[in-house]
């Protein structure tokens, strides 16, 4: 019992919460960026532009099919060869954004496909340009359909930030390791605390998604 009390001293908990803050920061910035980039890439792939769509599609498929851990290594160890040297937190954000953009691009593309092709044709027949039809008719419906998939992707992203501990990003998992590194008797209490923190954030998001889903239906 004493282990638990010691492990949950305010100093340790505060250190874990600082880690959680970085986790959330990385997740939120990455999700916003990858939503924008993912939308553009998804539409490009959908639009079947000669060459470009094929190339973008191939890049999406390659990155999507690699472990995120590998992307993190490439960004942190590989990019500097091109003169760009990110610190750990920007590197984590960049790696998350690259990976998640590709995942979201696929969600967007299948969301667009799920909106009836007839709607696109009807809008074009009414004299709308493709970009207009896309912006005013197809995308709003597609995004509505995609909300659950997008939220669960966001939850994955939050959980995946834990992988960034391998490059010593000061996020929750890494801070947890520092805390139980001081005294191995803290392992279980720290694991329980980390699990609860991740769970609270992710579960709250999934409840929110269910709530929005119900309201929109």
């Amino acid at each position: 019992m004493q282990n638990w009390i010691d492990a949950y001293s305010w100093i340790n908990i505060r250190f874990l919460l600082q880690g959680l803050w970085i986790t959330i920061l990385i997740s939120v910035i990455s999700v916003v960026l990858s939503f924008i980039i993912g939308s553009v890439l998804g539409i490009i792939r959908y639009a079947k532009i000669p060459y470009l769509s094929k190339i973008v599609g191939f890049i999406i498929d390659v990155i999507r099919n690699l472990p995120l851990l590998l992307i993190i290594f490439f960004v942190y160890f590989g990019l500097p060869a091109f003169g760009f040297k990110p610190d750990t937190i920007p590197a984590a954000i960049l790696a998350m954004t690259v990976f998640e953009s590709m995942m979201i691009a696929e969600i967007i593309r299948s969301g667009i496909l799920a909106v009836d092709v007839g709607q696109m044709e009807a809008s074009r027949a009414m004299g709308m340009k493709m970009s207009q039809a896309m912006w005013h008719i197809v995308l709003p419906q597609a995004y509505k359909k995609m909300i659950p998939a997008l939220v669960s992707q966001f939850i994955s992203l939050i959980k995946d930030t834990s992988l960034a501990t391998i490059i010593v990003v000061p996020e929750l998992m890494q801070h947890g390791q520092v805390v139980y590194g001081q005294d191995p008797n803290y392992i279980i209490p720290v694991f329980v605390a980390m699990a609860i923190m991740y769970f609270v954030v992710c579960y709250a998001l999934s409840l929110l998604s269910k709530f929005i889903d119900r309201r929109m239906a």
Binding site: I155, K159, M194
Partner: peptide, 22 residues
């Protein structure tokens, strides 16, 4: 289902590696 969907795989794995053997 809810617990294991909302906790990182790494936390689960490390738990099995470090805590269970103890």
């Amino acid at each position: 289902v809810e617990v294991f969907r909302n906790i990182p795989l790494l936390v689960i794995t490390m738990f099995f590696y470090l805590v269970i053997p103890l």
